[in-house]
Protein backbone atom coordinates (compact mmCIF):
# COMPACT_ATOMS: atom_id res chain seq x y z
CA UNK A 1 0.00 0.00 0.00
CA UNK A 2 1.42 3.40 -0.91
CA UNK A 3 1.55 6.02 1.80
CA UNK A 4 -0.18 9.39 1.59
CA UNK A 5 3.34 10.84 1.43
CA UNK A 6 3.94 9.01 -1.85
CA UNK A 7 0.48 9.74 -3.21
CA UNK A 8 0.87 13.46 -2.58
CA UNK A 9 4.19 13.45 -4.41
CA UNK A 10 6.91 13.17 -1.78
CA UNK A 11 9.09 15.98 -0.43
CA UNK A 12 8.09 18.77 -2.88
CA UNK A 13 4.42 18.21 -2.07
CA UNK A 14 5.19 18.45 1.63
CA UNK A 15 6.81 21.85 1.02
CA UNK A 16 3.56 23.04 -0.55
CA UNK A 17 1.58 21.57 2.33
CA UNK A 18 3.82 23.35 4.88
CA UNK A 19 3.07 26.71 3.21
CA UNK A 20 -0.67 26.12 3.52
CA UNK A 21 -0.56 24.59 7.00
CA UNK A 22 1.81 27.16 8.52
CA UNK A 23 -0.26 30.04 7.13
CA UNK A 24 -3.40 28.60 8.70
CA UNK A 25 -1.69 28.11 12.05
CA UNK A 26 -0.32 31.69 12.11
CA UNK A 27 -3.75 33.05 11.25
CA UNK A 28 -5.48 31.01 13.99
CA UNK A 29 -5.87 33.25 17.01
CA UNK A 30 -6.31 30.26 19.32
CA UNK A 31 -2.70 29.21 18.80
CA UNK A 32 -0.75 31.93 16.97
CA UNK A 33 0.80 33.24 20.22
CA UNK A 34 2.80 30.01 20.51
CA UNK A 35 4.48 30.90 17.21
CA UNK A 36 5.53 34.43 18.17
CA UNK A 37 9.25 35.14 18.11
CA UNK A 38 10.17 31.84 16.50
CA UNK A 39 12.61 31.50 13.64
CA UNK A 40 10.22 30.92 10.72
CA UNK A 41 12.73 29.00 8.62
CA UNK A 42 13.54 26.63 11.50
CA UNK A 43 9.84 26.31 12.32
CA UNK A 44 9.03 25.43 8.69
CA UNK A 45 11.71 22.70 8.76
CA UNK A 46 10.11 21.24 11.90
CA UNK A 47 6.67 21.36 10.32
CA UNK A 48 8.06 19.60 7.28
CA UNK A 49 9.38 16.80 9.48
CA UNK A 50 6.03 16.64 11.30
CA UNK A 51 3.95 16.54 8.12
CA UNK A 52 6.30 13.96 6.61
CA UNK A 53 5.66 11.79 9.66
CA UNK A 54 1.87 12.12 9.70
CA UNK A 55 1.76 11.49 5.93
CA UNK A 56 3.57 8.19 6.53
CA UNK A 57 6.81 9.36 4.92
CA UNK A 58 10.39 8.63 5.97
CA UNK A 59 11.07 9.96 9.44
CA UNK A 60 12.79 9.24 12.68
CA UNK A 61 10.74 11.55 14.84
CA UNK A 62 10.69 10.24 18.40
CA UNK A 63 8.45 10.90 21.37
CA UNK A 64 11.46 12.37 23.19
CA UNK A 65 11.97 14.95 20.39
CA UNK A 66 8.30 15.92 20.60
CA UNK A 67 8.45 16.21 24.38
CA UNK A 68 11.61 18.31 24.38
CA UNK A 69 10.42 20.58 21.55
CA UNK A 70 7.17 21.48 23.30
CA UNK A 71 8.27 21.53 26.96
CA UNK A 72 8.63 25.34 27.06
CA UNK A 73 5.20 25.79 25.45
CA UNK A 74 3.59 23.48 28.01
CA UNK A 75 4.84 25.82 30.77
CA UNK A 76 3.15 28.66 28.82
CA UNK A 77 -0.17 26.86 28.94
CA UNK A 78 -0.20 24.59 25.90
CA UNK A 79 -3.12 22.19 26.36
CA UNK A 80 -5.55 19.84 24.60
CA UNK A 81 -7.57 22.67 23.04
CA UNK A 82 -4.44 23.94 21.26
CA UNK A 83 -3.53 20.46 20.10
CA UNK A 84 -7.06 20.06 18.72
CA UNK A 85 -6.73 23.36 16.87
CA UNK A 86 -3.53 22.19 15.17
CA UNK A 87 -5.18 18.93 14.09
CA UNK A 88 -8.11 20.96 12.72
CA UNK A 89 -5.75 23.10 10.66
CA UNK A 90 -4.02 19.97 9.45
CA UNK A 91 -7.31 18.50 8.27
CA UNK A 92 -8.25 21.76 6.55
CA UNK A 93 -4.86 21.77 4.80
CA UNK A 94 -5.42 18.25 3.51
CA UNK A 95 -8.93 19.09 2.29
CA UNK A 96 -7.43 22.02 0.39
CA UNK A 97 -4.98 19.59 -1.22
CA UNK A 98 -7.87 17.36 -2.32
CA UNK A 99 -7.21 14.52 0.13
CA UNK A 100 -10.22 12.30 0.90
CA UNK A 101 -11.92 11.99 4.29
CA UNK A 102 -10.69 8.46 5.00
CA UNK A 103 -7.08 9.51 4.57
CA UNK A 104 -7.58 12.67 6.60
CA UNK A 105 -8.89 10.46 9.41
CA UNK A 106 -5.78 8.29 9.11
CA UNK A 107 -3.51 11.35 9.32
CA UNK A 108 -5.45 12.58 12.36
CA UNK A 109 -4.96 9.18 13.97
CA UNK A 110 -1.16 9.36 13.49
CA UNK A 111 -1.13 12.95 14.82
CA UNK A 112 -3.19 11.78 17.79
CA UNK A 113 -0.44 9.27 18.66
CA UNK A 114 1.91 12.11 19.69
CA UNK A 115 -0.62 14.08 21.78
CA UNK A 116 0.74 12.80 25.11
CA UNK A 117 4.34 13.61 24.19
CA UNK A 118 3.51 17.08 22.87
CA UNK A 119 1.56 17.95 26.02
CA UNK A 120 4.25 16.48 28.28
CA UNK A 121 2.28 13.73 30.00
Amino acid sequence: MTTLYEQLGGAPAVDAAVDIFYRKVLADERIERFFDAVDMQAQAAKQKAFLTMVFGGPNHYTGVDMRRAHARLVTQGLNDSHFDAVVENLAATLRELGVGDAQIAEVARIAESVRGDVLGR
Binding site: A11, D15, A49, H60
Partner: peptide, 27 residues
Protein backbone atom coordinates in the same frame (compact mmCIF):
# COMPACT_ATOMS: atom_id res chain seq x y z
CA UNK B 1 21.55 12.15 10.19
CA UNK B 2 17.98 11.16 10.79
CA UNK B 3 15.59 9.92 8.09
CA UNK B 4 18.20 8.50 5.66
CA UNK B 5 15.65 9.05 2.93
CA UNK B 6 16.46 12.56 1.74
CA UNK B 7 13.57 14.22 3.56
CA UNK B 8 14.91 15.66 6.81
CA UNK B 9 18.11 17.22 5.41
CA UNK B 10 19.96 16.55 8.68
CA UNK B 11 22.96 15.05 6.86
CA UNK B 12 23.69 18.13 4.77
CA UNK B 13 27.36 18.31 3.69
CA UNK B 14 29.18 20.44 1.13
CA UNK B 15 31.27 19.64 -1.96
CA UNK B 16 34.53 21.57 -1.73
CA UNK B 17 36.15 20.25 -4.95
CA UNK B 18 34.47 18.17 -7.61
CA UNK B 19 30.77 18.12 -8.43
CA UNK B 20 28.11 17.14 -5.90
CA UNK B 21 25.85 14.34 -7.22
CA UNK B 22 22.68 16.10 -8.39
CA UNK B 23 20.56 13.13 -7.29
CA UNK B 24 21.59 14.01 -3.73
CA UNK B 25 20.41 17.62 -4.12
CA UNK B 26 16.72 16.95 -4.73
CA UNK B 27 14.53 19.08 -2.52
Amino acid sequence: SSCRAGACQSCLVRAVAGTAPSSAQKG
